[in-house]
Design a protein around this nucleic acid. Structure first.
Lengths: 210, 210
DNA sequence: AAAAATCTGTTGCAAAAGCAACAAAAACAT
DNA sequence: ATGTTTTTGTTGCTTTTGCAACAGATTTTT
């Protein structure tokens, strides 16, 4: 499978006379897209970070997903069966590519040479996204906050080849990601620290157990 | 996007002299595949149902995913960062197609005509799988069992075009799917019934509220 | 440099969920 | 048809979690 680096480079150099792509830049707080209309949209985040946000009928805002560089998202990957309104909001300045799924499958009208590669790369990004979703499900299915945290820390240390790692986002974001109450999570973190499972200085965590 | 029916027919007729596919049948209880070795495997379930099962270090068995007809699975879609042993086990008799991801991306050596269509169909199945995973995440991120159940019921009734629907699996399986304690879920179901939110006769549920 | 907004950390209390154990019903197998 | 296994349904008790509220630290904005 291609590396993120190779794929990102492909998209950077993607010639815009290939009819299937639009490039846009968004500044912090702007809405990149919504999942309301159904137009088979696929988006690739070239730089920056963005949140997938749900406003429920009470107007409560919930962060239900986070996207970073190289990641793919868009309403075509999302179920239509909820009546919630979903928005993707730039958390910081973002460069985004927009595609249409049908154009990708059928091939663009100009039959540009790179179209085949485009398809393969999007394929690969969607597979990576699947792995990301399965990882999150693995965490969400753990029954206790402690288990969620320890599993998350294990995965992080595995990825980082080091028992010590820095969280890629704030503790508030981590609570959203694990779908637990932030204060309850902080309490559990304090316990893990007291009981000698972890060391913690700000967002830098060290796992002290296997 | 193609319908499940069209895709299933394509795979049924997939000529086996296309080098990329192997077909096998499994009877109830047999292990279809494991996610231990890394050989870029992708599997399509042609008939039957199967469970994705984890045995943790204590030997506890947990059902972490369920697959039915037309669905795609396989270790290539799953993160490598956990040291758990994962198995896909036939819950009933199953017909399964096995592919290799790299063969699909690069094209088979015989350059058979249907290879392009094969790729598109697998692409589509993976997208459907993404939607399925996002649906489950939506449920798992709900904070209470009541919220999980009501959201699940809403989605089911939406899909079924009817406030009344039959669960596609047992209540025990539903508890696994929502990752909650079965007895706690039963308690909550009883409350929802008493409070007039639902009607329930065995696995047949009717939503009585919006 | 000051003001505003966000994030971190802590705690008491109430609500929710997990666990364990058991009996009855239903499904499956011999 | 009979015995076995799985599923459903219920309940008491304990643990975990969410909620609310607050203070201090840090970051961002003006």
């Amino acid at each position: 499978m291609k590396t993120d680096f190779e794929i990102l480079n492909f998209f950077k150099e993607l010639n815009s006379n290939c009819s299937t792509v639009i490039k846009r830049t968004f500044s912090k707080g702007e809405t990149i897209t919504t999942y309301i209309e159904k137009r088979a949209q696929l988006c690739i985040l070239m730089s920056g970070t963005a949140n997938l946000i749900r406003y429920d009928f009470n107007g409560n805002k919930t962060i239900i997903g986070q996207f970073t560089k190289d990641e793919i998202f868009g309403e075509i990957l999302y179920p239509t069966n909820t009546n919630n309104e979903l928005f993707v909001e730039a958390k910081e300045s973002c460069d985004v590519l927009f595609f249409n799924y049908n154009n990708i499958i059928t091939g663009c009208t100009k039959k540009c040479k790179i179209h085949q590669e485009l398809k393969n790369n999007i394929f690969t990004l969607i597979m990576k996204n699947t792995i990301k979703l399965n990882t999150r499900i693995e965490l969400l299915t753990k029954k206790t906050i402690r288990d969620k945290l320890l599993t998350y820390f294990n995965i992080s240390s595995y990825k980082n080849f080091d028992r010590t790692f820095v969280l890629p986002f704030s503790l508030t974001d981590l609570a959203d990601y694990l779908s637990v109450d932030r204060s309850a999570m902080m309490r559990e973190l304090a316990r893990l620290k007291n009981e000698g499972f972890i060391k913690k200085q700000g967002n830098k965590i060290t796992l002290l157990i296997k």
